[in-house]
Amino acid sequence: MTDPDDAVARRLDANAAAGPLAELFTVDLTVAMATCAGCGNTAPLAAHPLYAHAPALVIRCPKCAAVVLRYASGGGRLRLDLRGARLLTVTLDGAAAHGLSPVQ
């Protein structure tokens, strides 16, 4: 049984995600492994084709050419669309030192 009060307490305001997200966006995303939401292909973001001569940066899957990521700055705003990326995996430097390495 779920206590409704517990459920409310567990649902945090997304402000609480700022810390973890700052960790993601200070790393070099191009070294991240990106998994295409369309075909499931996984490859380093840096190895994806980038179409830069468009109203936004458009990064496509190297296997199926579906859009994986769109990023633009314009009109005083930054925009990031990650609908086409099922998963981004960033390997942290010193992960072992933080106790984040997989259990042996």
Binding site: Y51, H53, A54, P55, A56, R60
Partner: peptide, 8 residues
């Protein structure tokens, strides 16, 4: 005539 493309 600039060419702008978001894909191949």
């Amino acid at each position: 005539f600039p060419v702008l493309s978001a894909g191949p």
